[in-house]
Write a protein that binds this DNA or RNA. Structure first.
Lengths: 239, 239
DNA sequence: ACAAAAGTGTTCGCTCTACACCCATGG
DNA sequence: CCATGGGTGTAGAGCGAACACTTTTGT
């Protein structure tokens, strides 16, 4: 057999392997009632019927992974233009009843206030779950979730993505609480404020809370333009 | 139609989508002649015939992604138990002549001395390329390589993976050179040594270089046990 | 003796950490 | 007037950056 024939044969064999399914699983994080939460749905697939699972679907043959992730997110939440980031692809054998399916996990961060506005229309079974009390998820979703949570914890120390989880206007205490919950540590109030304000990534709105039974807190917002500037010139950020 | 029928239908439709190919592309890094290098092969697939490409193959239906990555690495280098880490999955449309193929990119770091010992048997066209002078790779491999290189640069600042690229016994100057090449910066010799030695991750072997036309340097080796200890107790590492 | 790389300490500024009290509001 | 969370500064320790000369070997 000639060398070119061998190559043709190799390519023919390779095409026999195109029988994979590819799914996208979205790990959708929100922050509410002072807790970090993840959005889960009820699984309708044997042998996991009734168990909680991440929000996932098969990727269509004519859409990119990013498009699939955005589609899934929109179907569940009614939201577009939400923070979305690929984390890792899971490809062990027998992880899915359909056959050989590899799953690409995406982290998504959204402001729960937006979710509430957009999710009243759908009657699906999606619910927010406190991340500290999860067990017995469908498929290998427990592993996926742990991996994605670790990624979030690492990333939140290095980039100002925490803002994606807060309302447009927030107080420094809310921000500190968010970090404490994600990282699972207590932070010193004065040091935290100094560090955050020195970065100049948040803007003092000169507004205050109202109707609170204590001294009203100042409201701030995230300065995305300044963030992009810093990023181009080599951002350094540490918790 | 009943609800359970709808669910069955949904699952049938989903199975129609299982026509993906999944490939693994290995970005195999080595360090030699004081340069960071990547292993490339000649592509034999239209329309990229003759162009340089990453080392990639289709994943078999009965192997995991990790197994595929290890298989590819072994076929090209004859090496097992090499540092291997998933980086990202690339899934745009029309990136591959076979049809819809998503590719999972893996970073691999190896000691080039080991490679030389194991690769004499194969007659393939793999060659090491200086990472600073690459262009016109096949497929979307230029993008994959850039993503993987950025990951390496980031990771090398946070974890002691640089040792994977050096011989068992190395000098502090070699180590410093490695960091300088990967990061593309110059480092202060005294400060670098202080920082590295303070971490206690390397062991003074009480041996010296021989046959060098200058004062012989001390040889060190990486202390993997101590690294695992530190990791468990929350390793902090910075360049 | 000379070329070439190895090896070694100190100073200064900055950053991180620990820590305690007064303030503004609603009830 | 009391309960609740908001808001503020300083001192000490540790860390990172800058910097120049002596040592050892081969030729």
């Amino acid at each position: 057999m000639e060398k070119t024939d061998l190559i043709q044969l190799k390519h023919l064999e390779a095409k026999q392997k195109m029988k994979f399914g590819v799914s996208v699983d979205g790990v959708i994080f929100g922050f509410d009632e002072n807790e970090l939460k993840v959005l889960l749905i009820r699984c309708d697939m044997e042998p996991y019927v009734g168990q909680w699972s991440l929000v996932g679907e098969m990727v269509n043959l004519d859409e990119t992974l990013e498009q699939a992730a955005n589609r899934i997110l929109f179907n569940q939440t009614g939201l577009k233009n939400v923070f979305l980031q690929q984390v890792k692809t899971f490809g062990i054998l027998d992880r899915h009843p359909y056959g050989r399916v590899v799953s690409v996990a995406y982290n998504s961060l959204l402001k729960i206030e937006d979710f509430k506005l957009n999710s009243n229309s759908n009657e699906n079974e999606a619910h927010w779950h406190d991340i500290t009390t999860l067990e017995n998820l469908a498929f290998d979703h427990m592993e996926i979730l742990n991996t994605c949570l670790n990624k979030l914890r690492k990333q939140v120390r290095e980039e100002p993505i925490g803002f994606e989880l807060l309302p447009e206007k927030f107080t420094l205490s809310q921000l500190q609480n968010l970090y404490e919950r994600i990282l699972g540590v207590e932070l010193d109030k004065r040091n935290f404020r100094k560090k955050i304000l020195k970065m100049k990534l948040i803007v003092d709105l000169q507004e205050y809370q109202t109707n609170v039974a204590h001294r009203p807190a100042k409201l701030f917002s995230f300065d995305k333009e300044r963030y992009e500037q810093l990023r181009k010139s080599g951002l350094i950020f540490d918790l």
